[in-house]
Write a protein that binds this DNA or RNA. Structure first.
Length: 580
DNA sequence: GCCGTTTTCGGCCCGACTGTTTTCAGTCG
């Protein structure tokens, strides 16, 4: 059983205990554990196999939860969970996904109206039965009905970070220029600072909603401006400092307006993650302080709040970069280092550290531009080198290169290298890994290439042992330098192929093969949690665009986001190095 | 249910907004 499935079981146990009105700290323990497990970079089964007491070393997992995990690992299920699930009808917990409906309400609907799922809840609302219940009224009923209709009509996929960033930028532009295309300076003067926060600022690969923080002395004006955005489909709430809307695109946008003196504290709060916040607030509390979005307070005296660094330092921690705030060990590290150890926090890689791109396509395979056009674009953008890595000939790949065409391409590259020097085009190839782990090109060719990238483009559904063995065999080829998009997933479209990622990482380390962080916004592969794990195991990485058009070099920043979320520094990434 | 340079027992983050109320519970982040 994989971590995601186990996390889901814990989430359900938490939900049911909450509906049953049990001790809040008990069900919260299950939620916290679910969250932690979902974020783990190593499979629970591996942790348990390596150390029988390893599970209880995970923060938030004690003896009882560890035993439940062990039971699930050994039997495929938890009797406790099964018993709880049996107390509720099928589909019951889905009602919690309706906005405005929580544990208290579903319990009320069930006990009073025998409502068992979303469809029955909709029927009850349409029959105007909900408003007859205690604590409910006409307004609540119609809001729930609207939320159900919205839920049933929209996709529940989280947005790609790429899409969310675009929408956030447009929204910020609207607020900033008053919707007048930059001419309305009266409105922009209202805004002293503005920044998208939440999972977007943490550069999570997908984003559930967009959070925007704004500093202003005149929140009412900002709120007016906010709800006038033409792309708004529905206003969910509108207060004096906080409003929520849903855009026509279906994404929710929350705006918080705050005084400039509190901007740092509000950034910290609004960026999350939730679990990170809970822990930082807990640390503050244990020091006799209080941390909220308004600042750090010693009794009633505000001692920090203007900047995030000030806030972290005030509670005894070094500044923690937003990308790291996922409760994946950053709190423990920060507590260990303390304010004085701030310089020893990871110095996360930045886009400007990249000097080349080691995975680039041209019209020699499935891209549209010729090599010179592509190379010129990179040169102009300030890069020192690229590796031309067109596809090897293989079923399913358009215009893949066979040995003869590869040799022809080398001549072209030699010619261009003279012309474009000191910019350098490396001779490369994205070589297919066959189902049996052999490569699509012979070693005689591979050894003459500067960069051999290997990749899986077929037989995605092999069972885990075969898929793992296939990739491991390829990594052991002495000429292989990089493993492209190691998991193969396309976000929201295609799941990762089933592999033992720990085994692949270890093999890559042993054979000095770099793991690619593919920057394509729908790949972002290797995933951040595995990047962090791989770094711990000593892996090297390559942040590549996999560009099929020179404009795709813009994607590299998404690869850098992933790298930062995996705590990488420039020295961990081979294409931050000079070419020689 | 978890956890411990305040505790092995007694704590467990903090605040905004809404609707239904007449002071607050529920939900959300």
């Amino acid at each position: 059983m994989d971590n995601q499935s186990i996390a889901k079981i814990f989430e359900e146990i938490g939900n049911i205990l909450e509906i049953q009105n049990q001790n809040p700290f008990r069900f919260k323990a299950y939620y916290r554990a679910a969250q932690t497990i979902e974020n783990l970079s190593q499979e629970l089964s591996e942790i348990y196999k390596a150390d029988k007491n390893g599970l209880t070393k995970i923060p938030g997992i004690g003896r009882a939860l560890a035993d439940t995990i062990i039971e699930i690992l050994e039997t495929g299920k938890s009797r406790g969970h099964d018993a709880l699930v049996k107390t509720l009808p099928e589909g019951f917990l889905n009602m919690l996904d309706i906005r405005g409906v929580g544990p208290k309400k579903v319990k009320l609907f069930y006990t009073e109206l025998a409502v068992k799922n979303i469809v029955e809840l909709k029927e009850a609302a349409e029959k105007r039965l909900l408003q007859t219940l205690p604590g409910m009224g006409e307004k609540s009923e119609s809001e729930i009905l609207a939320a159900i209709n919205e839920y049933l009509s929209t996709s529940h996929d989280r947005r790609l970070l790429f899409d969310a960033m675009q929408q956030a930028d447009e929204f910020v532009a609207h607020l900033g220029d008053g919707g007048s295309g930059g001419k309305n300076s009266a409105t922009s003067k209202l805004i002293e600072a503005i920044e998208p926060c939440g999972s977007l600022r943490r550069r999570a690969e997908t984003v559930g909603d967009i959070d925007i923080l704004c500093a202003s002395k005149n929140p009412e004006k900002i709120m007016e401006r906010y709800v006038s955005y033409p792309e708004i489909a529905k206003i969910l709430s509108q207060g004096s400092t906080k409003s929520s809307v849903v855009l026509k695109s279906g994404i929710q946008v929350d705006l918080r307006v705050i005084d400039k003196e509190s901007f740092g504290a509000a950034l910290q709060y609004f960026t999350g993650s939730k679990e990170h916040n809970v822990r930082t607030r807990d640390i503050a509390k244990r020091k006799g302080l209080k941390l909220s979005e308004y600042g750090v307070f010693d009794n009633d005296k505000m001692i920090a709040g203007k900047t995030e660094k000030e806030v972290y330092n005030a509670i005894g921690l070094p500044f923690i970069p937003p990308e790291m705030r996922e409760n994946r060990g950053e709190i423990e590290l920060a507590e260990k280092l303390g304010v004085k150890g701030e310089k020893n926090m990871p110095k996360l890689i930045e886009l400007k550290d990249l000097r080349g791109d080691l995975h680039v396509h041209s019209d020699w395979s499935d891209a549209s531009q010729d090599i010179e056009t592509v190379a010129m674009a990179y040169k102009k953008a300030g890069f020192d080198y690229i590796a031309m890595t067109d596809h090897s000939a293989f079923i399913g790949i358009t215009h893949g290169m066979d040995e003869n065409r590869i040799k022809q391409q080398w001549k072209e590259i030699d010619k261009l290298n003279k012309k474009l020097a000191p910019f350098k085009i490396l001779k490369g190839c994205e070589v297919d890994i066959h189902k049996d782990g052999t490569l699509a090109l012979p070693d005689e060719i591979l050894k003459k290439l500067d960069i051999v990238i290997v990749a899986v483009h077929s037989a995605f559904t092999l069972p885990e042992p075969e898929q793992t063995a296939r990739i491991i065999k390829a990594l052991k080829n002495p000429y292989v330098k990089i493993l492209a998009h190691p998991s193969g997933r396309l976000i929201n479209k295609r799941p990762a192929y089933k592999v033992d990622m720990d085994a692949i990482i270890k093999t890559a380390v042993e054979n000095d093969v770099a793991l690619e962080i593919n920057s394509s916004p729908s790949r972002m592969d290797l995933q951040d949690i595995y990047v962090k794990r791989a770094k711990e195991l000593g892996a090297k990485f390559a942040i590549n665009s996999d560009s099929h058009h020179s404009s795709h070099m813009e994607y590299l920043k998404f690869g850098v986001f992933v790298a930062r979320k995996g705590w990488l520094e420039a020295k961990n990434v081979i294409n931050t190095m000079p070419i020689s």
